[in-house]
Write a protein that binds this DNA or RNA. Sequence first.
DNA 1: CGCAACTAGTTTTAGATCAAACGATCATCA
DNA 2: TGATGATCGTTTGATCTAAAACTAGTTGCG
Lengths: 160, 160
Amino acid sequence: MSATTKSRGSEVARPKTQPVTLGQLDNYIAFHLRLAQNASFNAFKRKAGEADLRPGRFAVMAIIEGNPGITPLALSRASGRDKSTITPVLRGLERDGLIARSRIEADRRSHALFLTPAGEAMLQTLTEAAAEHDRELDAIVGDKKHELIALLRRIVATLD
Amino acid sequence: MSATTKSRGSEVARPKTQPVTLGQLDNYIAFHLRLAQNASFNAFKRKAGEADLRPGRFAVMAIIEGNPGITPLALSRASGRDKSTITPVLRGLERDGLIARSRIEADRRSHALFLTPAGEAMLQTLTEAAAEHDRELDAIVGDKKHELIALLRRIVATLD
DNA sequence: CGCAACTAGTTTTAGATCAAACGATCATCA
DNA sequence: TGATGATCGTTTGATCTAAAACTAGTTGCG
């Protein structure tokens, strides 16, 4: 490895961000996965600033919509997060009147989750913002979208 | 949406994890990206328990190795994390004698970062563990690896 | 020169996340 | 029936992260 003789020539037009070698990292799927997720997350948040759109909230509400009566535990597994992180999200959603929890009489440890009408309306609004973001991603990956999702899904399924 | 008549038949061989509909989420690249990154990260951590292998540490050391004399700010950009999160990592690495910081005389605000011999040795050990993990990912994606990384890289480049 | 605007790194504050421990409830089986 | 062990949801503690405020140093320009 040559000592990367830093070209600090005084006339070089200030290389705002000098190129950085990623080295072995550049060949790691895990690393690029993190970078991409991070970039996606940040872009999402940028758009989200407008609405009260937090990614976690959106995912939770969307899953409840698709699975009315789902329990918090199943919800946590579907959304890929620990069950303990679901608790505060649900509390916030309930406080804001967007979801309703009802005890399941057959198993009084569990709760059944539903969207309220206000929740349905809110989800519809959030969906538009989210769809806009994902259209951006769609444009980036083009016709490889299906293949990309299939690969990501396989990673999740295999690694548990 | 039919009320998902939950098949709670008493003789059904306990459906450990009843199928959950992801709904619109299932078509979102961003969502699958998060799930996959999460699964990868957790699998990594599982293996990492053995060594003192924290993903952040590993990435930082690998980038320093590939770019001796790099500054913390450039490092934060390359690793996709905020500069303020780099500080404690560097402090820990320096405390453990794995990196060295030296002031840059040309700009006394900046620090140049290097791996110490102990750091080089440690990185080599960590690399083996990391490589093992990424081989797992390689096996999952098979010959699509190159394409997958290209897609992820394009996402990062486009979304900034 | 000397002031204003900018940059590098740190500290502080706030939020998200996981893991482990806990109370309440349920299932199993003698 | 009654005790043991499992499961659901919550709480607590630790770690990781970003954003904003701050200090020290630098650059530009009158």
